[in-house]
């Protein structure tokens, strides 16, 4: 068990190394020049050259990479070229919490809505309710999130004035105000996942409800709610956790659009503006954080299986 976990962690390190080299290299290969962007349209060759050497961009690729990697591991992430922002503060202390709040809020919301909806669909299989939830799920998957976001803003924030249009308040500082600001963006981001979780729950539960031990429970005379919610729903945990781990990429991708529409200062907005501005170091920090998050969550998913399924606890 421990050995297995260590192996996973070693694997993770290799993956991170590959990711860092690839993202560093790809950005250099992309056309466009941070210095030209920094200097705008008004600059001379001298200012170009002096800035280039000041930023170390005249060094060979490997030197630039090694420089960056050594500093990065020590937590010294550098300053952004143009705005001179301290990247560690900007990316890790300011942007990451916003994205984590948004992502976790959406995920919790999606589970709280998706699982009951899926369970009900499974119990009421092939009824109007089931068909309705299928339509809802299909719409949720197909509806572009940025459009949904804008529609929600116009209806709930501008017309009804129920929620704020935009902005972020840290739930650590003001919990309820933070949640209040998260409702519209959370709803926007979670539609896709609500749909997915509903369908997954329904499919899994229908299968589970045909298992012999469910029949046994019913034969024991346990009430229907207990059969479904205790014996049945428990079995959803495994596939649900697996799929959420795999779909984390989609979630993080979704935060980019959601953050832009609702003007949340998270990793998504940071990455977008950094890529457009060729802020190599900021992009690099963003990619690394996202990669660590993605790999870390999947590592946790792997490690969580024995807890979710007792059959996996006895190692062979």
């Amino acid at each position: 068990m421990l050995f297995k976990a260590l192996g996973k962690i070693a694997q993770t390190c290799v993956v991170l190394f590959v990711v860092s080299v690839a993202s560093f290299g790809l950005l250099k290969l992309a056309p466009g020049d941070p210095i030209q962007i920094m200097l705008g349209s008004e600059y001379s060759q001298e200012s170009y050259d002096s800035l280039r050497s000041e930023l170390g961009l005249d060094q060979p690729f490997l030197v630039q990479y090694a420089d960056w990697a050594i500093q990065f591991v020590q937590g010294n992430w550098g300053t952004s070229y143009v705005a001179r922002a301290e990247i560690f503060t900007y990316a890790f202390k300011e942007a990451l919490p916003v994205t984590l709040t948004l992502a976790s809020f959406s995920l919790v919301f999606a589970i709280l809505v998706g699982v009951p909806l899926g369970v009900l669909s499974a119990i009421k299989k092939d009824t109007i309710f089931d068909a309705g939830s299928a339509v809802l799920a299909l719409t949720g998957t197909a509806f572009p999130s940025f459009l949904l976001g804008i529609l929600l803003i116009w209806f709930f924030a501008v017309k009804l004035q129920l929620f704020p249009v935009m902005g972020y308040v840290s739930p650590w500082e003001n919990f309820w105000l933070g949640i209040y600001h998260m409702i519209l963006p959370g709803l926007t981001l979670s539609t896709y996942f609500i749909a997915m979780i509903t369908r997954l729950t329904r499919a899994t539960l229908i299968e589970v409800l045909e298992q012999p031990y469910i029949a046994a429970a019913r034969a024991r005379g346990e009430p229907n709610w207990r059969v479904v919610w205790v014996h049945g729903v428990r079995n959803i945990a495994m596939p649900l956790v697996t799929i959420l781990g795999l779909q984390l990429g989609v979630l993080l991708q979704g935060t980019v659009l959601t953050e832009t529409v609702f003007n949340l200062p998270g990793v998504g907005q940071m990455l977008t503006s950094a890529v457009l501005g060729r802020e190599y170091l900021v992009v690099q920090a963003g990619v690394m954080m996202t990669a660590v998050l993605f790999i870390g969550v999947n590592l946790l998913v792997d490690l969580s299986y024995p807890f979710l399924d007792p059959r996996l606890r006895t190692s062979k």
Partner: peptide, 18 residues
Amino acid sequence: FVLMNEASTALAALFSGQ
């Protein structure tokens, strides 16, 4: 000065008084 990327969101925020 609220830094924003999306002008239509800014307009919505203006209309709602934010």
